[in-house]
Amino acid sequence: MATTATPPPSNGPLVVQPLKRRHCGECGRGPLPLLVMEEGTPRCLDCADLGHLVFLPRGDTALTRRSREESGLSAVVVRFHRRRGRYERQGVLVEEAALARAEERCLADAEARRRRRTRDARRRAAEDVRFTDAFARNIRRLFPGCPADRAHAIAAHASVRGSGRVGRSAAGRALSEAAVVSAVRAAVRHTETPYDQLLMSGVARHEARRRIAAAVDGTMACWREGGPDGEGREGGPAWEGEDD
């Protein structure tokens, strides 16, 4: 399609990035990187009274919007796309001071967003600590013979945010007994038995589980019997927080 296709309508001046070598019909300057068509004649930005504006490429929507808000005069820059047969927006021309003010506003917003992300990260970290502690307490409640450090390690592994593990399931976050038992069973399977070695040697998962089932049940039964002080038997699950 010819490059003489009609550019799209625009509020304010419209500037074209020409595909061919064009010269200003008023001052003769050229070839022009940007031009304005007036009554069918190309004119350079200086002759079109837009030479004092600076080019802001497309890509940053917020910066573009704010630059046009700050600028008393602005223009849309387009270029014809031959394959698509249409003019496409390339950016805008705005006053340099307006662009500087818009950049300051965007930087202020970026700093505010950074501080908000930091606060959110701290809040989530505090929630994670409370949740892990609550999960560990419930392990000790159901398995009082489980050493405290092991209970905390199991809870920390099961409750990693975004991991998809049982501690982050709906049942896990509710600290249901089934979820706690499932987390403990998985930990015992991987750390107290040769289960991983069996898998690495090529034993099928179901067969490997069958072979170590007695060892898992034995360890869990021992932990259920309780330690010398019976610590952790009292109290039910308690957790408040949310997983963003």
Rank of each mutant, 00 (worst) to 15 (best):
C24F: 13
G25L: 12
G28V: 10
P31H: 04
G28R: 02
L19R: 06
T4V: 05
T4I: 05
V36L: 07
L32M: 10
G30L: 09
S10C: 09
E39Y: 14
K20F: 07
E26M: 12
R22D: 04
T4W: 06
L32P: 10
E39M: 14
M37I: 12
P13G: 05
P8K: 04
R22T: 11
R21Q: 14
T4S: 09
G25W: 13
G40N: 08
A5G: 08
P33T: 06
V36K: 01
G28N: 03
P18V: 00
L35H: 09
P7G: 00
M37T: 10
G40R: 14
T41A: 12
T41Y: 11
E38Q: 13
C24L: 11
M37P: 01
A2G: 07
N11W: 09
R21E: 11
R29M: 11
P18F: 00
M37G: 05
G30V: 06
T3A: 04
G12D: 00
E26P: 08
S10L: 06
G30F: 08
P7I: 00
Q17K: 09
L32V: 07
P8N: 01
G12S: 04
P8H: 02
S10G: 04
T4C: 01
A2I: 01
S10P: 00
A5N: 12
E39V: 14
G25C: 12
R29L: 14
G12A: 04
G28T: 07
T41I: 15
G12I: 06
Q17N: 07
T41Q: 15
G40K: 12
V36T: 08
G28P: 14
P9C: 02
V16Y: 01
P33W: 12
K20Y: 05
P18T: 00
Q17L: 10
Q17D: 05
L14A: 01
A2N: 03
P8W: 02
L34H: 13
V16S: 01
E39C: 11
E39H: 15
R21N: 10
K20R: 15
L35A: 09
L14F: 02
V15D: 02
P13E: 03
P9S: 03
P33L: 12
A2L: 06
